[in-house]
């Protein structure tokens, strides 16, 4: 039990560090890309679907707080929305079948849209006037997130199938 907890903490730290690296690389390549690509959401959704609601919620908290630390927004807003995103993704994916690519993309899109709405509402309440929709570009963010997460999961499944075929 303790060993699993330690492993989960290490996995969380590693996943957040990876998300920071991807976010920074994207920002260094093209800063405007960050309007449509949220590396933290991608990592939270992917790991929540794979490892369940508790891991998703804890990873969401860590990733959201790191995202807040790299921003001038109120510390905790992204933390809260990503905690809920991670929890919902892990909880619902254990109860309904989201294995196929089509279902998965719809599921992650719905959750990403929900997260964006929640984040926009919260930011509008705690720091009025600071929400910038980047000329509507941010609307694309849930779509990009959903495509990346579903693509990543589909790639993982394909790789696992090939591996099992080779093994069998």
């Amino acid at each position: 039990m303790r060993e699993t907890a330690v492993k989960d903490i290490l996995r969380t730290v590693l996943a957040v560090a990876l998300a920071v690296a991807v976010y920074s690389a994207a920002g260094a390549g093209a800063p405007a890309l960050l309007a449509v690509f949220n590396a933290f959401s991608v990592f939270v959704l992917y790991f929540a679907i794979r490892r369940g609601e508790i891991f998703g919620a804890v990873l969401g908290t860590a990733a959201g707080l790191v995202q807040d630390a790299f921003s001038l927004g109120v510390f905790g807003v992204a933390g809260l929305t990503k905690t809920l995103l991670g929890f919902w993704a892990g909880f619902i994916s254990r109860r309904i079948d989201v294995a196929s690519f089509g279902r998965n993309i719809l599921f992650t899109l719905a959750l990403s849209v929900l997260e964006m709405i929640l984040w926009t509402l919260l930011t509008a309440v705690v720091r009025p006037g600071s929400v910038n929709l980047q000329g509507g570009l941010v609307v694309l963010q849930p779509v990009i997130t959903a495509v990346l997460v579903s693509g990543w999961l589909a790639f993982e499944r394909r790789r696992a199938r090939i591996r099992s075929l080779r093994g069998g």
Binding site: A57, T83, F91
Partner: peptide, 30 residues
Amino acid sequence: SALVLPGLVVFHILLISVQVPRGAEKSLFE
């Protein structure tokens, strides 16, 4: 799971609450 989620949500709400209205100083945690 029923304990973790409310715990994390309450933690975030408290974290946001202590900053609104937003102060000039960043917290030690941040």
